[in-house]
Structure formats: structure tokens, C-alpha cells
Simulated assay, not measured.
Amino acid sequence: MEVIRGLHNLRPAHRGSAVTIGNFDGIHRGHQAVLGQLEAGARARGLPATLITFEPHPLEYFAPERADARITRLREKVDALRAQPVERVLCLKFDARLAAMAPEEFIQRVLVDGLGTEYLVVGDDFRFGNRRAGTFETLEAAGAEHGFAVERTRTYSLDGERVSSTRVRNALTAGELETAAELLGRPYRLCGRVVHGDQRGRTIGFPTANIPLYRRKRPLSGVFAVWLTVDGGPSRPAVANVGTRPTVDGTEPVLEVHVFDFAGDLYGRPVSVEFVEKIREEQRFGSLEELTAQIDADAAAARRRLGVE
């Protein structure tokens, strides 16, 4: 899968595409249905399936205080897309220039001149361009003018309710990891690179791998039973905390993972953390002794849940 960052990196070879557009936060089963529809249209026309997405999300640009917590960062989104029938991802930087672009200019520069779009699939509630003036009908009219087909996405439902990023996010916030996994079509994971921490966990007998979250908001928080994978290797049972470590007056959100029966060096290595079950909410303790006792109990609970007692 080819990742193209910005319009300036489009080349003549990228012209002639089947395209879909959106934030695609989570790459959940609803998104996967859209990508299946895109693949079918692309295959019928002999075109590469191309996904256009934005970084940051438009609402993060316009009103970061009102933006939802992301299910997936860009890197996690791209990783999830590698398992989908997508050949190209065009990531457009959402900035003042893109926000001010009129719908007609977006169509001309991105869809027509940039990608040579021949087939487009989007939701009929899709809005784009300056002041969100562009609509599905705008795209239909442009398709008739420029010679590309425009098709509506089909709604994907589970248990009688539409699968959406909001539904996934609500399940994660509530700690309903099985529900989230069912909506995503895979277990929920956070990815990152292990960095040096303050070594406090080591002093109380629970050394941790510290992974910065680089998120304004988190879709979940608390203590969890997890599996940790290093560099795509075997999964290792672990207990993890997602939060700000209130007992030690932490401020920056971090993912801390204590891997059971492991003594290797993880610094600087990319890891993936798969969330299995929520054990409890994050809380402040009166002393490190109380915190240590609770971590010991959390570890025992995680071992039971993961079947590694």
C-alpha cells in the first residue's frame, strides 16, 4: 500500500483512480464495508482503490476543545488499512489553505487533476470545501461534468444499529472492550515506541514500558489486561495503565505496560498493545505502598483473565 502525503507528492502515475474520502477513524466494520464497495468498483474498472483522508481531523483544526478522542492516530490508521483492499492512501494536511478551498477547487485539484478520478464512493451526508458547502449532489454534478461515476456508501449495521466511530468510541470509553472489538472487527490496539520513563515502577517491583500517547484526548483510560507485541513478534501477557498517574502527580497521558515474566530491554522499540479487559478505573492512592499493593492485585487479575497464572 502506497501512502502519499500531500497534493504536491501526486505524480502522473497516480491518475486514474477509484476513490473514497473521509476521516475513517478506527477503520471499523462500517468503514471496511465502504472499502469493500470501493474495491468492487475499482476492480470492475481496472483502477487502484484510493482513500483520501485528512490530518489533523477537520474538527481538531477548527475546534480542538470539541473534537472527539481519536480511536486511531494516523500511524495506527495506516497500519489498519494495510489489512484492507486499499492500494493508495492520500493524506491531505488540513490547514487554513485546505479549509478555505471552495468545493469546486477541491474537485478540480484533488479529484480531477490530481487523481484522475473515474469512480467515487462517499456517504450521501458527506460535506466538504469552504464552509462545508460541497454536498453529495455537488459531487454528482461534477461527476457528470468530468466523467466520473459517483455512488453512495451503503449503511452497515450490527444488532440493528449503524456501526460508526462514535459507537466504537462510546464502547471504549465505557470499558466495553468486547463490544468495541466486535464493532472494529479486531481487538482494540494502541501502538507506539517505548521511551525512557522516571524508573519509578522499577523501584516498586513493577518495571514498565512507557509509550507516549500523543493525543489531546484518550478514547479509554484505566487499568487493563493486555497483550504486548514487540516488532511484530509473539504476544506477551501484561497489565497496562492508560492515564496520567495521579498518585505520582503525572500530567502527560501515557500508556504504561508491565510485561509478566520478562526482563528484556524494550527502549526505542515499536510495540502494539492489544486491550482484552478493563480491570478498574485509574485512581489516586495515599502512598506508594497502597499503589504497590493495588498493582499487585491488578497484575493477578490480569493474569487470571489472560490465562497465565
Rank of each mutant, 00 (worst) to 15 (best):
E176Y: 01
E282D: 07
A299W: 01
L255W: 08
T292M: 01
G143R: 03
P103D: 11
I4F: 05
T155G: 05
R186H: 06
P48Q: 15
P187Q: 13
A302W: 01
R269C: 10
A141G: 08
R215D: 05
D25Y: 02
Q108G: 02
L266S: 06
T50D: 08
L213P: 00
F262H: 14
Q84E: 06
Y267E: 14
S287L: 07
E161N: 13
V276A: 06
V34D: 00
E65S: 14
E176K: 15
F285D: 03
E178R: 09
L51S: 04
P270F: 15
Q283D: 01
N130L: 11
P246E: 06
R193K: 12
A293H: 02
E118V: 03
P85C: 10
Y188P: 01
D198W: 05
R75A: 15
R236M: 14
R304T: 09
R43H: 13
Q108F: 04
R127K: 11
G233H: 02
V257G: 10
V223K: 01
E60G: 07
V254D: 10
P64Q: 14
R215E: 12
V150Y: 05
L51G: 00
M1W: 00
R73S: 11
A149N: 02
G197T: 07
R186F: 04
P219R: 04
E76I: 14
P234C: 04
E289H: 09
E39M: 11
A102T: 15
L172M: 10
V254Y: 11
D249M: 13
A69M: 11
S287V: 06
N170H: 03
I107N: 06
R303P: 01
R154W: 04
Q283C: 09
D249P: 03
L228A: 12
P48D: 14
A144Y: 07
G134Q: 02
E289V: 08
A209G: 02
D68K: 12
G243S: 11
H258N: 15
A174E: 06
V168L: 07
